[in-house]
Amino acid sequence: MLENYSSNATTAKIRAKYAQLFTQEDYRELAALRTVPEAAEYISRSARFREAFAEVDPNTIHRGFLEELLYRENFKTYIRLCKFQGLDKQPFFGFLIRRSEIDCILSIINRINSSLDRTFLSDLPGYLIKYLTIPVMELSLSQTYEDLVAGLKGTRYGKVLKKIPVREDGRADYTECELRLRTAYYAELLEQADKEFTGSVSDELKTIILREIDCRNIINAYRMKSYFGYSPDEIKRRSLTYYGIGKKNMERLYEAADPEIMMDMVNHTIYGKNSPDTDNIEVEINSVKIRRLRHYLTGSTNAPVALYAFIILCDIEVSNLVHIIEGIRYGVEAAAIESQLITL
């Protein structure tokens, strides 16, 4: 009980930060700009990213670095919020670090599979290095999947990846690796939400996490169905096995005859209610997702819930900004850019 009260300041701080997120009007103004330097200048003037851009000249900034700065600011915001009242001492709050570690490992697997030497080093966001619990720089030198697993020995990821069969060419199936790593990640997260918190905090956290998994599963299933023509069994095998809307309901979606029917069925679930009229599955599902997250962020007084929801909202915001910057870079019409944004 007292712990909940002690993190009230973090909740207040998160809400104050939440007010700094870009609004639909901001996105509209940004998408209407014509050049990347103009967009960089606009972003650098915002309260949210002003500090991150303090030493940067928007006129000469590299687009890749601009995007990295946005992601870095998100990560630093997360670190600052966790350290503000010492929340980082609780294992649950390491969720973003663990997620980043999984992304790094998957990048290295991808690099090994595609035989590209050292490209991971260039892609590795420098700001992550000191926060990760795995020796990511050493791992980047791995030449085979076995090297990587050996490097991860003793970590939570080593155990998961060890079980994946290695093919004759020394490589492992990327999709399988991703599925196992993410399954282990969500399993740990749900367990932490259950054990470290009680009552409404635990319930709200588990609901948010399960809904996040649902969204991921629906989007992936739709893609597998429409672009690769996978059967329901294949989709089921490649999806995460946690369900917010229930196993049966999710499997019913997988079993839909075609993507259109599946989307029609989705529209009758909580992920289709009042969703925007768009052909983009990601925009549709995520728009509903962020509405729920906003609801949790503004309604919940629990810091873990507010922080988890806020970090996802920040991620969506940065992905919107990256969309806009790319759109501007390739001369896409402002209206077309806006239609790809998740803003509901």
Binding site: R72, R118, L121, G126, Y127, K130, M137, S140
Partner: peptide, 12 residues
């Protein structure tokens, strides 16, 4: 260069 990236140099 971004100070964060200095650590990467020794791995090339």
């Amino acid at each position: 260069m971004p100070a964060d990236n200095l650590a990467k140099l020794q791995y090339y």
